[in-house]
């Protein structure tokens, strides 16, 4: 670990670049996805368009986007903008679908009650729909964030700076510790951001934990609904029915959470 003490400032710089490339797409992607998803919930014909679109987008390898985007954006091939735009697209691909699931899992009665109480559409969106959709959205966000963090390092292959640079540099100079530091740092960032999001979900969903169902029951419901959801899903994947933990607990939302996580495997 001598290498680390001699190069910690480089590692910090690269970690910073890595963080920016993973977080900015999540934030921008979220801001774009929520309105799109809300639109798809009220205009039903948009739904298949979005679902098919995001599946196709998701099938395109990240390296392909990293190379093609400079042509469209006019950026240099080693620009971080390429990574940010590419990953934003992936985040949208994940989040639009999970937000549509989230909005659709809302209890119609609650929404009608809100309207009956005098909520106007915009206030209803911010005051009722978004808070209720939080658990499913957080699940989507966590998946998007963790997969972003590992995708960012791939950019290093074509010279985009990130913690991935430690891998390419370490290989070239045959420094095992450099690569190990890179792996550990990437995993650490993934764990920390994932836990922060989990905590955020926890804080935003205090209202949920007064229910009488146990976590085990919710998980089971999630697993069952997950299986049925996956059956008709054209992009099924390995989800964990354990629903990680407390976020998988929205009334009627557990299945949606599991379905979101099922789509999340991608590097």
């Amino acid at each position: 670990m001598n290498w680390l003490s001699n190069n910690w400032s480089t590692v910090l710089d690269l970690a910073g670049a890595h963080l920016i490339q993973s977080i900015v797409p999540v934030v921008v992607g979220l801001l774009i996805s929520v309105p799109l998803a809300r639109l798809a919930t009220s205009r039903r014909w948009l739904r298949p368009v979005f679902v098919t679109g995001s599946s196709l987008l998701y099938t395109i390898p990240s390296l392909t986007l990293f190379v093609v985007l400079p042509l469209i954006l006019g950026t240099g091939i080693t620009s971080v903008v390429n990574v940010i735009v590419a990953l934003t697209l992936y985040v949208i691909a994940i989040l639009v679908r999970s937000c549509v699931d989230a909005f659709e899992s809302l209890d119609r009665d609650v929404l009608q009650a809100a309207t009956a109480l005098g909520y106007k559409p915009v206030r209803r969106l911010f005051g009722v729909e978004l808070p209720l959709a939080v658990p499913v959205m957080i699940a989507g966000l966590r998946v998007a964030t963790v997969s972003n963090i590992s995708m960012v390092s791939v950019g290093a292959v074509i010279g985009i700076q990130s913690l991935g640079t430690l891998f390419t540099d370490g290989l070239r100079r045959s420094i095992v510790s450099e690569i190990v530091v890179g792996i550990v740092a990437t995993v650490l960032i993934a764990i920390v951001l994932d836990q922060l999001l989990r905590l955020l979900g926890h804080v935003l969903t205090r209202w949920q934990r007064t229910g009488t169902t146990t976590a085990r029951e919710r998980r089971r419901a999630g697993a069952a609904r997950h299986a049925s959801a996956s059956g008709r899903d054209d992009r099924t994947g390995g989800g964990d029915p354990e629903g990680r933990d407390s976020v998988a607990g929205a009334p009627g939302g557990a299945g949606a959470v599991a379905a979101v996580e099922a789509r999340g495997d991608r590097a």
Partner: peptide
């Protein structure tokens, strides 16, 4: 699965090669 998922493949690739 979660632990394996957070491992960067490029890192493993270079590490194993070394």
């Amino acid at each position: 699965a979660g632990a394996l998922r957070s491992l960067p493949t490029l890192g493993l690739l270079t590490l194993f090669t070394l």
